[in-house]
Simulated scan of single mutants.
Amino acid sequence: MKIYVKVSDTDKPYLSGSSTEALDGYTSIEGLTNDQAIAALSRPNKCYVDDNGVLIVPNQIPLSQAEKDAQSVKLQLEGMSKRITDMQKTIDDLATDKANLQTALNNANADNNNLKQQIQNVQKQSLAYMTQLAQINAELAKYKQSQSSSQGGDK
């Protein structure tokens, strides 16, 4: 990649400007990597030209306050995004739990209704048995009475 740089008159060998166009007083620098070109174009005052005419770009250019603030905001947004993702997972888990609990409740209600029906059937059967037992007792009492009358009449 090719860019144009201007060495500072007051702070040699550091740059005072950089451009992608040939400007008056600017020198052409070729063979730069994209990272070098971006650094020279965005922060020329942190870059310099050595005695051999090679552009030197520091590995880590100190961030401006605006860049620090932007980075801080980005980290905060990433943190919020993670919290939102975690909350959404919690909401999804709770929705799944609610569905499972509703299914369990529906099954328990169905079991309860079945048990109620079984109790009603047992109560009906018990009533039928008690009615039969009462009839048997009544017949037994008649039989005993008839036996005792027939034995008492022979004496």
Rank of each mutant, 00 (worst) to 15 (best):
A22H: 11
I136F: 06
T96L: 12
I56S: 02
L115R: 12
C47K: 00
A99Q: 09
Q120H: 04
N121I: 09
S64G: 06
D69T: 13
G31L: 03
I119K: 02
D111A: 11
G25L: 07
V73H: 07
V7S: 03
P13A: 03
I56T: 07
G152H: 13
S19Q: 02
K155F: 13
Q132N: 14
I29H: 00
I119G: 01
Q123G: 00
L94M: 15
A141K: 12
L55T: 03
S8Q: 04
P13W: 06
Q65C: 08
N114W: 06
T85R: 08
N34D: 13
K116G: 04
I119A: 04
K98A: 13
M80D: 08
L23D: 04
S149P: 02
Q88Y: 05
K12T: 14
K46C: 12
S148F: 10
D93C: 05
Q125V: 02
A22D: 12
Y129H: 13
Q145N: 15
A128D: 14
M130N: 15
S149Q: 14
L23H: 08
Q125W: 04
I119W: 00
K144D: 15
A40V: 06
E30L: 05
T90S: 13
N107G: 08
S81L: 11
S126H: 07
L41F: 07
S42G: 08
E30T: 14
Q102M: 12
L23R: 15
V5Q: 00
Y14N: 04
M80C: 08
Q117M: 08
D35E: 14
D154N: 12
D35V: 15
A37H: 01
V7G: 04
I119F: 02
M80R: 11
L41T: 05
M80P: 02
N52D: 15
L77I: 08
A104F: 03
S8I: 09
Q76L: 13
S81A: 09
A95W: 00
N34I: 15
L105I: 13
K46G: 00
I119H: 02
T131G: 02
Y4G: 01
T103C: 05
D111M: 08
D92E: 12
S28D: 09
E67P: 02
Y26T: 04
D69W: 12
L32T: 11
D69Y: 09
E21C: 10
L105P: 01
Q123S: 06
Y48E: 07
K89C: 03
N121Y: 03
D86W: 08
L101C: 05
M80Y: 15
N52S: 13
S42W: 05
R83E: 15
S42V: 10
Q88G: 00
A104P: 00
K12Q: 14
D50M: 05
I38W: 08
S148C: 06
A138F: 11
N112F: 09
Y129C: 10
A128C: 10
K12E: 08
L75C: 11
L41S: 03
P62T: 04
V73R: 10
Q132F: 07
D97L: 12
M87W: 06
C47D: 02
K46H: 09
Q120E: 12
Y48P: 01
D69I: 14
P58S: 04
S18R: 01
V57Q: 01
I3Q: 00
S42R: 13
D35F: 07
Y129M: 14
K89Q: 10
K82G: 03
K46V: 10
S64V: 14
D92H: 03
M130H: 14
L15S: 03
N59H: 06
E67G: 01
L23P: 03
